[in-house]
Nucleic acid binder design. Structure first.
Lengths: 122, 122
DNA sequence: ACCAATATCCTTGCAATGCAAATATAATGG
DNA sequence: CCATTATATTTGCATTGCAAGGATATTGGT
């Protein structure tokens, strides 16, 4: 039983990894929307405000990609102890993208909701 | 402007493709939950009940994978004209997985909701 | 008998993402 | 000077969605 259970847990974990694809970009833009933040601040802030746990290996490639696509931009600044921080903020283009992504997300949530409800007769 | 707009649209389309990853497995299991259905019926039924448009190239590999993982099973039956239909239904293991996936989905939606709300002071 | 149309299903290959693991850089304190 | 802490980067793999093309079975027209 324990083994079956752990196999199920592994499957769910793999699936949840897939489920996050795309969502994380939206999450980053949402989180940067109000004010600039640096990488570690993003990780801890998102963990505190939601049940999402991002790791560095996840967030830094993501931030680089968002910057390359001109959705966010960065500036370097000294922190207190440790390597200099890189503060990221949303560009105007990023805000337009954020609006489109929010719409797409809302539509997807509505679709799953509709399919969760009992099927109507035919 | 038109060119900028179409570039944005392309980006959004690519992103929405990523956003669907994982969700489609949940959608299939949800749709098969009440009664067995065959591939084409799934595509048209999902399109009718939601705003999701799946294509054959999307759904068949997915169905094969779900069957290989023992989340669904299939039986062959004749339809009226055309190739024989393959009816898919959810296995007991698939129902357990569906429960876990529904929980994971709900948690994700709640997380995005929480990050959409204005940031509270610190 | 043949061919076209229709309904259904399958396969291959590519582009994109999340993430573990390892590495790099800078400041501080002992 | 070394260890620790805080922060950022890179590499490579597993997995997915999907376009494109093809395969299979039945029916109807000629």
């Amino acid at each position: 039983m324990t083994q079956e259970q752990s196999r199920l847990d592994d499957s769910v974990a793999r699936w949840e990894t897939q489920l996050r694809k795309g969502v994380l970009e939206l999450v980053i833009l949402l989180t940067l929307r109000e004010r600039e933040k640096y990488g570690f601040e993003l990780i801890s802030g998102i963990a505190k405000r939601s049940s999402l746990e991002l790791s560095e290996g996840t967030i830094y490639p993501l931030l680089l990609r968002l910057a390359k696509d001109d959705l966010i931009e960065s500036r370097l600044a000294q922190g207190d102890g440790g390597a200099p921080r890189k503060y990221y903020s949303v560009t105007p283009h990023g805000r337009r993208m954020l609006d489109a992504m929010t719409a797409g997300w809302t539509k997807l949530v509505a679709s799953v909701d509709a399919l969760t409800a009992p099927e109507t007769d035919r």
